[in-house]
Simulated assay, not measured.
Amino acid sequence: MGTKQPVSVLVVIHTVDGQVLLIERADKPGYWQSVTGSREGSEALLETARREVLEETGLDADQHVLSDWQLHNRYEIYPHWRHRYPAGVTHNDEYVFGLQLDKPQPVQLAPGEHTAQQWLPWQQAAALVFSPSNAAAIRLLPSRLGLV
């Protein structure tokens, strides 16, 4: 069994006009998502978000607008990923953040973790992601940006 903490962040990287960056998982081709990752040690969740954005995309969150969306999701960990957590852990607590960029930017994907990236309008991004909590967060984007 693994040692991964069942506390994670979801960071929706988006532009001011509602385009969303999606990245494809290397271990599950066809699984598209926003940036995600587990807390390490006792780091603050904002630091987890900054670290994961940098590790997975090469973007420096301090150069953009990183915000805590004050959303918390609790979900059952997919069985094929439970081996990463301590024995008996079946649920994860996920905290949602947004990273706003002025316009789409190229990213450097983490080797071995992600294989492809794409910028999509929020509607297409919400329809493509595999995670229900990721889709729900993306669907909040228009109201957060004042697009509705």
Rank of each mutant, 00 (worst) to 15 (best):
H64E: 10
L59Y: 04
D60T: 12
S34K: 02
L21F: 12
P104R: 10
Q33E: 13
S143N: 07
R139G: 01
S42Q: 12
D62A: 09
N73R: 12
D60Y: 09
P121R: 14
G37D: 09
L109Y: 01
P104S: 06
H91A: 10
A110T: 04
M1Y: 03
G30D: 02
S133A: 08
L128F: 00
M1I: 07
P29Y: 10
W81K: 12
Q124N: 10
Q100E: 15
F130Y: 08
L22S: 06
H83D: 08
I138T: 05
T90M: 06
V148E: 12
D17V: 11
L21S: 08
V65N: 10
L10I: 13
P104K: 06
P121N: 13
R50V: 02
F97I: 00
R144T: 01
E40G: 07
G18M: 07
V20E: 05
W69C: 09
A87G: 09
W69S: 09
P86Q: 09
R144P: 00
Q118M: 13
Q108R: 15
L54S: 10
L99N: 01
S143P: 00
I77A: 00
H80F: 09
L99C: 03
E47C: 02
K4F: 05
P132I: 01
A126K: 03
W122N: 07
L128S: 01
M1P: 06
G2V: 01
L101M: 02
N73F: 15
E76I: 11
L128R: 04
T48N: 03
L66K: 03
L140D: 10
T57Q: 08
P104H: 09
L66R: 04
L101D: 00
G112S: 05
M1R: 09
K4A: 14
H64P: 07
H72W: 05
N134L: 02
N73C: 10
D60P: 06
F130W: 10
R39F: 00
A135G: 14
S67T: 08
W119L: 02
V9A: 04
L120N: 09
Y78L: 15
Q118V: 15
A126F: 05
A135M: 05
W32H: 05
H72E: 14
T115E: 13
E47G: 02
E24Q: 12
A110R: 15
E43G: 03
G41D: 07
H83I: 01
Q108A: 14
R139N: 10
V12M: 15
F97T: 00
S143G: 04
T36N: 12
E56S: 03
Q33K: 14
N134E: 14
L128A: 05
Q100V: 15
E94F: 00
G88D: 05
P79T: 02
